[in-house]
Each structure stands twice: as C-alpha cells, then as structure tokens.
C-alpha cells in the first residue's frame, strides 16, 4: 500500500506528505498515528513528534532549520513555525516590501 506520508530517515522528526492531506485527517506514519491540524499539500512536512521551540528540524537525517513556535505531532511544519539556520526565506509579498 502506498503511504500517505513518509519519514526519509530514522533520524527525522518530520514526515513528508505523499498526497494532499485534509485538516483533521488521521494518518499512520510507521505505525504512529498523527492527527493533521490543517490541510497540508503534497510535498509539505508534518511533525512526526512534538517539536519544541529551539529544536532542530531534521529531514533526510539532516538539520534543515530550527523550530520557532512549539508544534505538536501532526502539525504542518513550514515558515510559520520553523526557520532556516542559514539564510532567510522569502515570499512574494515580502520580496515586494523589501524592493
């Protein structure tokens, strides 16, 4: 059976969605049940465990940034609750403001 979301490495604390997931949907990732907080598109990340502010987010077994706001297991993990440890990411409106 094709998984709904996968962890790319056993070291990871986030899983990647293999299809769009509905808000409130219960999914199984490696036998752990996660209740997804909001609608999450394909390719986006959800918390596999409870993430605390300051934790490193790990994907591919590598740190990909830091948690900025506590994110319980099942939360969508993105710009609103994590950030790069290297360079700032930007969105279209932010880019406009800085121009």
């Amino acid at each position: 059976m094709n998984p709904t979301a996968i962890r790319l490495s056993p070291l990871d604390n986030v899983a990647v969605c293999c299809r769009p997931i509905e808000a409130g949907e219960r999914i199984l990732v490696e036998e752990r049940e996660l209740v997804i907080d909001v609608a999450v598109p394909i390719g986006h990340k959800v918390a596999f465990v409870d993430l605390k502010k300051g934790d490193k987010v790990r994907k591919y077994g590598m740190p990909i940034g830091s948690v900025t706001v506590d994110a319980p297991a099942g939360s969508w993990v993105h710009l609103h609750n994590m950030k790069s440890d290297y360079l700032p990411a930007h969105m279209r409106d932010a880019a406009g403001d800085q121009a």
Binding site: V57, K59, I64, H78, M82
Partner: peptide
C-alpha cells in the same frame, strides 16, 4: 515555499 520547502538547507 509554496511547494513545501521551508529553508535553504532543506
């Protein structure tokens, strides 16, 4: 970012 990538290192 819209496609789910959050950081440069990701």
């Amino acid at each position: 970012a819209e496609g789910g990538l959050t950081s440069q290192e990701e």
